[in-house]
Design a protein around this nucleic acid. Structure first.
Lengths: 248, 248
DNA sequence: TAAATATCTGCCAGAATTTGCAGCTTTTTA
DNA sequence: TAAAAAGCTGCAAATTCTGGCAGATATTTA
């Protein structure tokens, strides 16, 4: 096998699998690992791939996770837009925290008059910037990681609220296990919020669909709407629609 | 799986869920927790995430609040320093809002362990950035102008607190009329805070000495310390000291 | 065509990296 | 305040990397 051929093969494998191991290549082409290494070094010098200890990575791989932040912001904005469309003048809305909620808070139309409840400091900050929104903060001990109020006091207060809508950014959702999260305290708060509202909308980027975490928030049946960045008829959403969950 | 791949996966998970546990990652990728920890340390060194006990947090999540220019920062810093010196480990401290309080929050020493109560969103944000401070937010309707909780619920909660220290930034102080302010709702909250604490310190730049506003908060006698940017023996402070008000 | 030259490939020894483990310290939690 | 969980350090084994060397192969030149 010619050197050129070999390198072409390597590039093909890299673009196919996003990553390759020197040992695998050596075995597949039947040349020594040294040769593979030299090839990888050359290809890396030419900027065709990224060499790392033990093998190589595709170039697009790197930009994938670097860009995923920005990429996700766009998706979250799309979700936020859909969520905002559910809110009408005069409503009582209760929301959690998280980046998607923050995006939603920023997109609320100037002339919307509504009352918002939240226990999240960043979300509260955004709501308080809005000219026509009345904001009620649900206080208690603030969880450091998420800057959101947790604990019995907060849950008690939430129980006394009768909201029209509840918006929750969620960490994982799955047909079988429903909505799950990884922080016990925050889950308690979310549960209370769901119970206190007549309608609950959960917001999630599609990447979180069909994933699970450790603590269960609620079953699919307790949710009224699922909001993702996808079109309503996207195939990933089929199982959820079939489970009777309305999609926005 | 290559090291870089693993780290990319970790970053992806962090940006997706805002936080991850070492144990979960170790289980998901099938490597030892030591390896995960080392990865997290490397990523944290590169500033890609924030490492915490048991896992890591997303970096982008926390930074929403822009430090805006405040009037008279230097003087307020000087006041804040004096205020900080009053706080000891283990104390329960209740504070209002305002720029002076914010400065104080930023100056709290890293190793101070104390519990803070506040109803101010910006102040809460600052406290929540501190590693060793336990923060309890006193929730209720948020007053737009000052981003602070006001109303019966808040006052009720404050009544149930027994704090060691109360810090208030004040708008006006005068020998005859005591501490005065211009917002009725906020004054109610401040009154409750003063009552709930065994010691009250009021903080004011010297400009506000000998001025009055429309609503009375409390008389000079109810204050335990007055903190200004001036030296203790500054002539402007004489009348206050003579009225029996300790000066810091 | 034969010799000279350049390139490629495999092998090797020592250096470097990575990883899991054991023992010990620190932090968290009940 | 003590048990449990997580973190850190140093070590050892395994893997990978580096540069040099030698033989094989390809290319050029006399």
């Amino acid at each position: 096998m010619l050197k050129k051929e070999r390198q072409a093969y390597i590039l093909h494998q890299v673009s196919l699998h996003n990553s390759v191991l020197s040992a695998d290549l050596s075995h597949a082409i039947n040349v020594s690992e040294d040769t593979i290494r030299r090839d990888l070094n050359e290809l890396a010098d030419d900027g065709k791939l990224i060499k790392v200890h033990g093998g190589a990575l595709s170039k697009s791989f790197n930009s994938f996770y670097l860009r995923s932040d920005v990429y996700n912001v766009d998706n979250k904005k799309r979700i936020a837009e859909k969520a905002v469309s559910m809110i009408k003048d005069g409503m009582f809305v209760i929301t959690g925290g998280g980046t998607t909620i923050i995006e939603m808070a920023r997109l609320l139309p100037e002339d919307l008059k509504a009352t918002f409840f939240t226990g999240s400091i960043p979300a509260a900050y955004e709501y308080s910037q809005h000219p026509n929104i009345e904001l009620i903060f649900i206080g208690d001990k603030i969880a450091k990681k998420s800057q959101i109020a947790v604990g019995g006091e907060a849950i008690n207060r939430i129980r006394h609220i009768k909201a029209d809508l509840c918006f929750l950014g969620i960490n994982a959702i799955d047909i079988q296990h429903g909505v799950t999260d990884n922080d016990w305290d925050i889950v308690q708060v979310k549960k209370a919020m769901i119970e206190s509202a007549s309608q609950t909308a959960v917001m999630s980027i599609s990447e979180k669909l069909n994933t699970t975490q450790r603590v269960r928030v609620c079953g699919i049946s307790e949710i009224d709407v699922l909001i993702t960045e996808l079109e309503q008829d996207a195939p990933q959403l089929h199982p959820f629609r079939e489970a009777g969950l309305p999609i926005l």
